[in-house]
């Protein structure tokens, strides 16, 4: 895929131009419009109440009830049992493994995200759309398949199984396999978050820096990184949450060795199967708390990023074209 040395006429090119011209157009919030028009463009009170009622009811049933019930189940045998459950050596080892996994997978995906978004937003080349689609791949691949492909690669009867056995290297049913599966499932997140932010920030300043004699790395550290740092952090936080919470893919490659290859989500399932429901929900509540922290962090950082939103396959086209 060689870089194309001219402005392409395809949609991705026009998007890049739109992006660099700045996405933050002057939106006039409804509240600032004149009062009379406001009334004409607003919904009747009854409709508003109904809609709010339906929305909060839906979210209440689907989000708040599950959220509350996790903590209720976790604490229904008392705080003592709760702390006993989460300080059990097996629980601690699951927590340690989960942290270790995230500590490896997230930085890997961070570097990947930076490289991919630099390549995609700063250069034109053939197959850019294909590359962007490929980055989205883990969104659409079932976690079970994600785990299975590593078994087919590194399992005893996989491509490299024989070689690995000979050299006594364990990938599957050991920590490396868990890290690999987690990395696969979470690799789009940083890239997906960075691409729109980087595209929106434009290249003028970087060009100026280069013209004034800065090296590529200097430009990157001094100009690009500060501009995209909030978007980057945002991506890292989401990536981290997913890395710590992955279940399906990790379940296939874990081997479920107690105290060794169980991550927290797997340990939740094991406790559940041990008829240890309270402990199971206790560990689940830790993961839920982590999810809540993630949501708060997203919100705080979200205010600093141009467009706080979920990194989705939808990408950013809709939004930026709207600006």
């Amino acid at each position: 895929m060689p870089p194309v040395e001219q402005l392409p006429s395809g949609p991705s090119g026009s998007r890049a131009v739109d992006g660099s011209s700045g996405a933050a157009g002057g939106r006039v919030p409804v509240s600032e419009a004149s009062a009379s028009l406001c009334r004409a463009t607003e919904d009747p009170v009854w409709a508003r109440r109904l809609i709010i009622g339906v929305a909060t009811g839906f979210l209440g049933i689907f989000l708040i009830v599950p959220l509350v019930s996790v903590f209720a189940e976790a604490l229904n045998q008392g705080v003592g049992l709760y702390f006993a459950a989460i300080t059990d050596p097996e629980a601690l080892s699951a927590i340690r493994l989960t942290l270790l996994t995230a500590a490896i997978a997230v930085p890997l995906n961070l570097v990947f995200g930076l490289a991919a978004s630099w390549a995609i937003t700063r250069f034109e080349f053939h197959g850019k759309n294909l590359l962007t689609t490929l980055i989205d791949l883990p969104f659409a691949v079932s976690p079970v398949i994600a785990g299975m492909i590593y078994v087919l690669m590194f399992g005893a009867h996989g491509w490299f199984g024989g070689w690995l056995m000979e050299h006594n290297i364990r990938i599957i049913f050991a920590v490396p396999g868990i890290v690999l599966a987690t990395t696969f499932v979470t690799f789009p997140f940083v890239a997906r978050e960075l691409i729109p932010v980087m595209e929106a920030s434009g290249t003028d300043e970087e060009l100026a820096a280069i013209t004034l004699g800065a090296t590529g790395w200097q430009t990157f550290y001094r100009i690009t990184l500060p501009k995209v740092k909030w978007g980057l952090l945002y991506g890292v936080i989401i990536c981290n949450a997913r890395a710590m919470g992955e279940f399906g893919a990790v379940s296939v490659v874990s081997g479920h060795i107690r105290g060794l290859t169980n991550t927290m989500p797997l340990y939740v399932e094991i406790l559940y199967n041990d008829y240890n429901f309270t402990a199971s929900f206790a560990v689940a509540s830790l993961l839920t708390a982590l999810a809540l922290v993630t949501l708060v962090a997203k919100r705080v950082i979200g205010g600093k990023v141009e467009h706080p939103r979920l990194p989705t396959v939808a990408g950013d086209g809709v939004e930026r074209e709207a600006a």
Binding site: F154, G155, A156, H157, I172, F173, G255, I257, R258, N273
Partner: peptide
């Protein structure tokens, strides 16, 4: 002694695939 528990068939599958 490390212990791994799971459904019998699933465990056999894991051993076949290289669970040591």
């Amino acid at each position: 002694i490390n212990l791994s528990n799971g459904g019998s068939g699933k465990q056999a599958r894991a051993v076949i695939d290289g669970l040591q």
